[in-house]
Write a protein that binds this DNA or RNA. Structure first.
Length: 912
DNA sequence: AAACTTACGTA
DNA sequence: CGTACGTAAGTTTT
C-alpha cells in the first residue's frame, strides 16, 4: 500500500525503481540454489500445501523473482543451479565446502518444483555437471557485458562480488530474500575497502567460513584491505610477504599456501561452455495456462496474481482488450536548441520526471516532455549540455510556461536535486483525481490512464522484432516509456479537467491543492531539527522502563510471556488468572487499554497495572526509535505530507508521521522536547485554531445558541453546559463540563447514546437524556445533522465550505452496518473537511505573507489545526502577526476563528 | 514473504 | 454501537 501511495515517480510503471531504466537490454542472473536456500531458512516450514508438500522455498523464491521482475524490469533472465557436490574445486581442495551439512530433504524436494515454476515462465534453468551456479553466472555476465547489456546478478555468494563493474551489479540478500543490497562498484568499495576486482584477493586472505576455506589467522577484512591497497593486489603482496611486519605478517607467511589455494578456488570461471547464449535468454512471456496449473498444485493464491501481473508479454491484454501501446517519435533536439524547442510547446504539455524521491528530497535523471498531437522529447539530465540544461531549468522554473504533471510535489523534490525549480504547473493529474475520487486508495498514473483513457500506458512493440535475437532490437528505445507517460499525463489532464468541472472542484485544484503542493514541498525539504542525543537518552530511559515493567509483570504471574502478544495475554488474563471476559473480538477477547483499565477497577490485580505501564512505555520507546531512524544527515526530520490520502481533505504525514507525536501524558510530552529550533533560527512558533470543528458546526448549523456561545467570551463547554444543565455558567462542575465536551465532539463523529454512555461510563439512559437535553437547547445542531445525512442521501455526496465533495454511495445500502457507517461519515466529512479547507487556505496565506514581507521565517509542520513555524532572528513579532492575521482571516465564518500562539525553543515549549 | 489483526498515538 | 489517519508488532496464511 505504501509503495503505491508514496511519492515515488517511476520511470516505468513499476513501484520503486532504484535505477534509471534505459533502452539497453538488461540481463538478470539468479543463483537459484543460493536464493532458494535463503528462502527455505527465512520462511517457516508450516508453509505447505494441504497434501503436505512443504513449499517455503518455492514460495519464497518465486516471490523474490516476482519482485525482481517488477522492480528491475529485466529484458533477459536466467537461473543457474549447482549440479552435484563434485566440482573442480573439491578435486583441487577436498575440504572445500566440507563443513556443509547435508541438504535437508525438505529443501531438495523443492528444487524440481522451482524449475517447474521457471518452466512455466519460459525462463531458462541452467545447470552443468561439475560446475557451480556462480561459474555459470560469471560466464554469462561476461558474455552479456560484451554484448552491451546491463547485468544484475542475484546471489547470496559473496564470490560474485568480483563480477561487479560499471555494467554489472550484484543484488546481495541482506535479510531473508526480500531485502537486497545493490552492490555496485562504489558499494563494494565502501563495504570492503577494495574495488570489486580485488575482492577475491581480500577473501583469499580473510577466508570464507561457508566454503570451509580458512583465512590467515589474525587477519580480518580491514588488515587485508590495507595490505591489498598498499601492494596493489594479492600477487604483489605475496611476493612481498617477507617484508610484512608484526604478528599478522608472521601469520601470513605461515599460511601462504592456503591463501594461494583460496585465491584459486574463489576465482569464478568465465569460460564455461554453456548450452545457451545470452541472446537465448530473452524474456518472451509466460505460459499463462501452465502458471495457473502450477499455482493450483502449489496452492499459490495472491502470489499467482502477483506473478501474472509481471508477465513480460503484458498479457493483461487477454483479459481486458485495450488499444495497443503507442510509439512516440522523439524529437532529436540539436545541442543548444532545447530552449527554442521548449519555447514552442503549447499549454497542453505533459512533463514526466524520472528519478526517485527520498524524505524531503530525491534525485532526477531524466525529464520527458510530450504534447498530444505534437512533439515529444526525452532529456537525459546526465547527458545534457550546459546550455540546454540552463534552458531546461529556466523553462521548468518559468511560472508562465504551463506544464502538466502527475504528482508535482515529488517531481519538484527530484528536480531540486539537480538545482532545478518547478513552477508554472497548471494541472496535476494526481491531485485532480484525488479531488474527483477522494475515497480511492491510490492514483497510479497507469491505473488512471486505463480507467479514464481506456488504454494502457505502454510502449508499442517494435514491428518485426518478434523472434529476433539481435540484441540491438531488444528493449524499447531509450526514453519511450517516460515520453509515453508524459504524453499520457497531458491526455489524462484533459479528461480529468472535465470531471473536475462537473464536480465544481476546479477552483479547489487551482486555488488550493495545486499551490499548496508547492508549500508542502518547501516544508518537507526544510524538515524540523531533532536533538538526537536527547532522543538517544530518552530511548534508554524508556527501554529501562520497559524492562522494569516487564520484570514486575513477570514476577506477579510467575512466568515470562510476550507482553506484546494479545494472544499470550489472553491466556494469562482469562485462563491463568481467570479474569472476567472483555469485549469479544475476532481472535477472542480484547486486551486493549480501556478494557484492561476496566479489569483493573474490577480486580485490582497488580499484573494489570504493570501491563498497562509496559504498554505505555514500550509505545513511547517505539516512537522514539522511529524518530531516531528518521533523522536525516542534516540533523532534521523530513516528513512527507500526503495530499491525496484522507477522504475528508485532510493531509496526512508519513515517514515518519509527525501528526501523532504524543502530547497527552507527561512522558509523551518529553518526546516533543526533541523537536527544536534549528541552527540560525530564533525559536519555534506554534499556532492553533481553538475548537475549530465546533466553530464549523456553529457556522454550518447556524444554531443561534452555539453562535452565541462563541461570541460570549465564556468557555465553550461551560457555556453549553450551563444551558443543557440549566445552571449558571459558574455552577457548571468539572464533571458536567467534561460530559458536555465529550458530547459536543461526539456529535461531529455521529456518536450514539450507547457510545456516549461507554465513553463516560454512565448508563445508556443517562446518556440518552443528556443528548435529548442537548438537542433541546441546540435544536439548530440537531436539524443540521439530520439535514446533512438527508441531503447526502439525495445527492450522493457531502460537501465542505469550499465545495470539496465526498461521495457516499453506501448511504442507500441495504446492509444496515454499511449504511450506518456511511451516515457517520456523512456527519463528519463536512466538519472535518471544512476544517481541512480552512487550514489549507491559512497555509497558503501564511506562506504568501511571509514571502511578501520578505521574512525568512518558515513553515515546518501542519497538524490538522496547528501550524509550526521556525522563526528567523528578529522576526518573532512579525511571524506571530503573520500567523494570527492570516490564520484568523483564512475564511469568514459566522463565528470568529480564534488562534492561540505559543513560542519556545522546542515544540514542547512552544505548545500550549 | 506477505497479508491480516490488534493496539494506540494524534486531530 | 465515534470520524480521519500511520506505524509497529504479533499472528496467520500461503
Amino acid at each position: 500500500m505504501r509503495a503505491m501511495l508514496s511519492g515515488v515517480t517511476s520511470t516505468v510503471p513499476s513501484r520503486t525503481p532504484d535505477k534509471p531504466s534505459s533502452g539497453r537490454p538488461r540481463l538478470l542472473l539468479i543463483d537459484g540454489h543460493s536464493m532458494a536456500y535463503r528462502a527455505f531458512y527465512a520462511l517457516p516450514d508450516t508453509l505447505a500445501t494441504s497434501s503436505g508438500q512443504i513449499t517455503n522455498a518455492v514460495y519464497g523464491f518465486t516471490s523474490m523473482l516476482t519482485n525482481l521482475l517488477r522492480d528491475e524490469q529485466p529484458t533477459h533472465l536466467a537461473v543457474a543451479f549447482d549440479a552435484g557436490r563434485v566440482t573442480f574445486r573439491t578435486e583441487r581442495f577436498p575440504e572445500y565446502k566440507g563443513t556443509r551439512l547435508a541438504t535437508p530433504d525438505a529443501f531438495k524436494g523443492q528444487v524440481p518444483l522451482i524449475k517447474e515454476v521457471l518452466d512455466t515462465l519460459n525462463v531458462a534453468s541452467i545447470e552443468m555437471a561439475g560446475i557451480e551456479a556462480d561459474d555459470i553466472l560469471a560466464t554469462l555476465a561476461l558474455q552479456a557485458k560484451a554484448a552491451g547489456m546491463e547485468v544484475l546478478v542475484c546471489s547470496g555468494d559473496r564470490d560474485t562480488l568480483q563480477l561487479v563493474n560499471g555494467d554489472v551489479t550484484v543484488l546481495y540478500p541482506k535479510k531473508g530474500v526480500s531485502e537486497l543490497a545493490r552492490m555496485d562498484p562504489a558499494a563494494v568499495e565502501a563495504k570492503y575497502g577494495v574495488p570489486p576486482e580485488r575482492y577475491p584477493d581480500l577473501a583469499a586472505l580473510v577466508g570464507e567460513t561457508s566454503d570451509n576455506l580458512p583465512g590467515v589467522p589474525g587477519v580480518g577484512p580491514k588488515t587485508a584491505a590495507k595490505w591489498i591497497t598498499a601492494h596493489g593486489g594479492l600477487a604483489a603482496l605475496l611476493d612481498a610477504a617477507d617484508e610484512i611486519k608484526g604478528k599478522a605478517g608472521e601469520s601470513l607467511r605461515a599460511h601462504l599456501d592456503q591463501v594461494r589455494v583460496n585465491r584459486e578456488l574463489n576465482a569464478l570461471l568465465t569460460d564455461v561452455e554453456l548450452p545457451l547464449g545470452v541472446a537465448d535468454l530473452a524474456l518472451e512471456g509466460f505460459d499463462r495456462e501452465a502458471v495457473h496449473l502450477v499455482s493450483d498444485t502449489l496452492q499459490f493464491g495472491q502470489l499467482r496474481d502477483r506473478l501474472l501481473a509481471v508477465d513480460p508479454s503484458g498479457a493483461a491484454v487477454e483479459e481486458t482488450p485495450v488499444a495497443a501501446g503507442i510509439e512516440l517519435d522523439l524529437a532529436d533536439v540539436a545541442p543548444g536548441a532545447l530552449g527554442t524547442w521548449l519555447a514552442a510547446r503549447s499549454e497542453r504539455v505533459g512533463v514526466e520526471v524520472a528519478g526517485k524521491t527520498v524524505a524531503g528530497g530525491g534525485d532526477a535523471w531524466a525529464v520527458a516532455v510530450a504534447e498530444p498531437g505534437g512533439e515529444a522529447a526525452y532529456l537525459d539530465l546526465t547527458q545534457l549540455g550546459a546550455d540546454d540544461e540552463k534552458a531546461l531549468a529556466a523553462w521548468l522554473a518559468d511560472p508562465v510556461a504551463p506544464k502538466i504533471l502527475h504528482g508535482a510535489k515529488a517531481a519538484a523534490h527530484m528536480l531540486a536535486a539537480r538545482n532545478m525549480d518547478l513552477a508554472g504547473v497548471t494541472f496535476d493529474t494526481e491531485l485532480a483525481a484525488y479531488l474527483c475520487y477522494p475515497d480511492q486508495r491510490g492514483y497510479d498514473l497507469g491505473d488512471l490512464a486505463m480507467r479514464h483513457l481506456g488504454r494502457e500506458l505502454k510502449v508499442a512493440e517494435p514491428d518485426g522484432a518478434q523472434g529476433a535475437l539481435d540484441l540491438s532490437l531488444e528493449g524499447e528505445a531509450e526514453g519511450q516509456a517516460e515520453a509515453v507517460r508524459a504524453h499520457g499525463v497531458a491526455e489524462l489532464a484533459t479528461a480529468l479537467e472535465g470531471e473536475l468541472a462537473d464536480r465544481g472542484a476546479t477552483h479547489l485544484l487551482d486555488d488550493v491543492e495545486l499551490p499548496l503542493s508547492g508549500v508542502l514541498a518547501r516544508m518537507e525539504r526544510i524538515g524540523i531539527a531533532a536533538d538526537t542525543e536527547y532522543l538517544t537518552g530518552l530511548e534508554r530511559q524508556f527501554a529501562e522502563g520497559v524492562a522494569d515493567a516487564a520484570a514486575e509483570a513477570y514476577a506477579v504471574i510467575g512466568r515470562e510471556v510476550n507482553l506484546g502478544s494479545p494472544k499470550q495475554l489472553q491466556e494469562v488474563l482469562f485462563d491463568q488468572l481467570g479474569m472476567p471476559k472483555t469485549k469479544k473480538i475476532k481472535t477472542g477477547y480484547t486486551t486493549d487499554a480501556a478494557s484492561l483499565q476496566d479489569l483493573f477497577v474490577k480486580t485490582e490485580h497488580p499484573f494489570l497495572a504493570h501491563l498497562l505501564a509496559h504498554r505505555d512505555v514500550s509505545r513511547l520507546r517505539t516512537t522514539v526509535e522511529g524518530l531516531l531512524r528518521s533523522v536525516a544527515p542534516d540533523g532534521r526530520i523530513h516528513t512527507t505530507f500526503q495530499q491525496t490520502i484522507a477522504a475528508t481533505g485532510r493531509l496526512s504525514s508519513t515517514d515518519p508521521n509527525l501528526q501523532n507525536i504524543p502530547i497527552r501524558t507527561e512522558a509523551g510530552r518529553q518526546i516533543r522536547r526533541a523537536f527544536q529550533v534549528g541552527a540560525g533560527y530564533e525559536s519555534l512558533l506554534t499556532a492553533d485554531y481553538s475548537q475549530i470543528e465546533m466553530r464549523i458546526m456553529a457556522h454550518l448549523s447556524g444554531d443561534v445558541g452555539l453562535i452565541a456561545a462563541f461570541n460570549s467570551g465564556e468557555d465553550l463547554h461551560r457555556y453549553v453546559g450551563s444551558r443543557v444543565f440549566e445552571v449558571a455558567p459558574a455552577d457548571v462542575t468539572p464533571e458536567m463540563r467534561s460530559k458536555i465536551k465529550a458530547m459536543s465532539y461526539g456529535l461531529a463523529y455521529g456518536l450514539s447514546a450507547f457510545g456516549l454512555s461507554q465513553q463516560l461510563n454512565i448508563a445508556t439512559g443517562e446518556a440518552q437524556t443528556l443528548m435529548d437535553d442537548y438537542f433541546e437547547r441546540f435544536g439548530g445542531v440537531r436539524d443540521y445533522l439530520s439535514g446533512v445525512v438527508e441531503e447526502a442521501r439525495a445527492t450522493g455526496y457531502t460537501a465542505t465550505i469550499l465545495g470539496r465533495r465526498r461521495y457516499l454511495p453506501d448511504l442507500t445500502s441495504d446492509n444496515r452496518q454499511r449504511r450506518q457507517m456511511a451516515e457517520r461519515m456523512a456527519l463528519n466529512a463536512p466538519i472535518q473537511g471544512s476544517a481541512a479547507d480552512i487550514i489549507k487556505l491559512a497555509m497558503l496565506k501564511v506562506q504568501h505573507e511571509l514571502d511578501t514581507r520578505g521574512l525568512s521565517s518558515r513553515l515546518l509542520l501542519q497538524v490538522h489545526d496547528e501550524l509550526v513555524i521556525e522563526v528567523a532572528p528578529g522576526e518573532r513579532a512579525a511571524a506571530e502577526d503573520v500567523l494570527r492575521s492570516q490564520m484568523g482571516a483564512a475564511f469568514v465564518l459566522n463565528v470568529p476563528l480564534d488562534v492561540s500562539v505559543g513560542t519556545g525553543s522546542t515544540w514542547h515549549e512552544a505548545g500550549h
